[in-house]
Amino acid sequence: MKLVTAIIQPHRTDEVRAALEAAGVKGVTVSEAAGYGRQKGHTEVYRGAEYTVDLVPKTRLEVLVDDADAATVTEAIVSAAQTGKIGDGKVWTVPVDDVARVRTGEHGADAL
């Protein structure tokens, strides 16, 4: 099993969720995130004052998938989240030793 984590632009969240559903993903965890990458934040003007946005708002998605599905899911996220601009985000995959479904006690692929 793999854990696919994606940091994307908040405004692409709905598109990515739709793409994941189309790819057969049954569940996803979505949370608010903030950070910066190569752009090192940026400046904005609000209420007449210029201020630096050090941490840019992002959306974090986490999906647990079977090993065989990891590449498909990653591609689905990348395709749906891509705008071609700086700050589109990152997707990474890490191996997962085990997964347990709390309600039933099932483990492994059965718990996905």
Binding site: P10, E32, A33, A34, E44, Y46, V53, L55, V56, P57
Partner: peptide, 13 residues
């Protein structure tokens, strides 16, 4: 949240 505030401020600006 600061997340929402930041997004709203950006669009407002």
């Amino acid at each position: 949240t600061t997340w929402r505030a930041s997004l709203a401020d950006t669009l407002t600006a």
